[in-house]
Amino acid sequence: MSIFVNKHTKLLVQGITGREGQFHTRQCVAYGTQVVAGVTPGKGGQTMDDIPVFNSVKAAVRETGANCSMIFVPPPFAADAIMEATDAGVDLIVAITEGIPVMDMMKVKNYLQGKPTRLIGPNCPGIITPGETKIGIMPGPMHKPGGPIGVVSRSGTLTYEVVHQLTLQDIGQTTCIGIGGDPVNGTNFIDCLSAFENDPATEGIVMVGEIGGTAEEDAADFITKTVSKPVVGFIAGLTAPPGRRMGHAGAIISGSSGTAQAKIEAMKAAGIEVCENLGELGEMCKTVFGK
């Protein structure tokens, strides 16, 4: 079992003919993902490798039955691409694009309200159900299929580090999701925690957060009330200075809000085993999940 995606997921790629789009589409195909279509307006009728390219998401969905879209469209046009995929009725959108203006994402988020489509990202590594499907830019081979641990994170390479340590400890993963480093995003921690809680194959959860916003505090509150499975947590940015954007648009301490310390305290209060040294995360998971 897994959450949100599995081997039956039929993927289309928006921006498939661009440099990034091509590269990562091939990586996904190599991992075993069913990539059924690509979309690049103006290039309909062409193919990328053997994958048919369409002018619109609607046409791609109609012709191929795609139910998920991965987006590599550049920032100025990415919000439009997300809304197009939503309008075409795909179940899931994974937006990889980094650097979408906040104003655009606020409009997207409000547009998505009440619609059945789920958005993961933007500015995220994507989602992988190891051994079944990879929808994103994460290196596939380091993942260990079969579960029983779910991983949810705001970061990219930090997630790779966490998964790598899990695999080294011989702990497999059900699904790993990067929800992205932007201030306004689609799927949040709570959505993922709730899905992992309801997934029978997932026995424990690793949650990786960072400074900025209150998503981790909200998640901690949700865990207290709703999550019965053990959770190991990590927060990046203890040494980050206030008022500076630490790479991710969302990773900024403003005033007294968004500090790592406040998040760690909220998580501990919720019964989460918080790891303060990233170098020891794998070992800690072994201890916590081995019980």
Partner: peptide, 23 residues
């Protein structure tokens, strides 16, 4: 490489008893 891992690396430097000079 990567903002989250960069922050976590700065934190590790601090935990080791030193101070990061940059992000």
């Amino acid at each position: 490489n990567g903002a989250g891992l960069a922050m976590a690396t700065m934190d590790i430097i601090k935990l080791a008893g030193a101070e990061p000079a940059n992000f």
